[in-house]
C-alpha cells in the first residue's frame, strides 16, 4: 500500500505543480487570484464554520428535543441551497440587453424552497413529538 501511496502522492504533487506553473506563466492578476484563494478559506473557517457552531449551540438551547434533528436537516439543505443561490438572488450578472439571462423570479423561488423546508421541518418535529409522547 505504501508504494501506491507514494506514487499517488508524487503524481498529485506533479499535477498541482503543473497547475501552479500554468497560473504563474499564463495567468494574470495573480494578486487577485491570491485574494480569492485566501478569502474562500478565511470566510469558511472564520465565519461560516463559526456561525454553524453558534447556530448548533443555539438550536440545542432553544429548540425542544424533537425539533432539533429536523432543524439540522433543514439547515444543511436550505443553507447550502442558499449559498448556491447568492449569485442569482443578487442578480449581479444581469444585463439590460439580455432578458434571457437570469430570467426567473429567484426571490420567490428561494422563498418557496425555504417554505417547503420549514413545512417539512415543523411537520417532522410534530410527528417526532407525538411519537415520543406515545412511547412515554
Amino acid at each position: 500500500m505504501n508504494a501506491v501511496r507514494g506514487a499517488a502522492g508524487a503524481l498529485g504533487v506533479l499535477l498541482a505543480a503543473y497547475g501552479a506553473w500554468l497560473l504563474v506563466s499564463r495567468g494574470h492578476d495573480l494578486l487577485d487570484v491570491a485574494v480569492w484563494l485566501t478569502a474562500g478559506v478565511v470566510l469558511h473557517d472564520g465565519v461560516l464554520a463559526v456561525v454553524t457552531v453558534a447556530l448548533g449551540a443555539l438550536a440545542v438551547r432553544l429548540l425542544p428535543a424533537p425539533a432539533r434533528a429536523p432543524a439540522v436537516v433543514g439547515f444543511v439543505v436550505l443553507g447550502s441551497a442558499t449559498l448556491l443561490a447568492v449569485p442569482v438572488l443578487g442578480r449581479f450578472g444581469a444585463r439590460p440587453d439580455n432578458p434571457t439571462l437570469l430570467d426567473r423570479d429567484y426571490t420567490s423561488g428561494w422563498l418557496v424552497l425555504a417554505g417547503l423546508t420549514l413545512v417539512a421541518v415543523v411537520g417532522a418535529a410534530l410527528v417526532r413529538s407525538r411519537r415520543r409522547r406515545g412511547e412515554g
Binding site: A8, G9, L11, G12, V13, L14, L15, A16, A17, Y18, G19, A20, L22, L23, R26, G27, H28, D29, L30, D32, V33, W36, L37, P87, V88, G90, F92, G93, R95, L101, L102
Partner: peptide, 29 residues
Amino acid sequence: TTWYPWAFSFRATHYALAWVAIGALLVHV
C-alpha cells in the same frame, strides 16, 4: 450567472486551479 467580480481571466485561472485542486486531492487521498 455571467458575474465576474474579479480581474483575472476566468477560463485561464479556473483551468490552472483545476490542476492544483486535483493534484492536492490526490496528495490528500
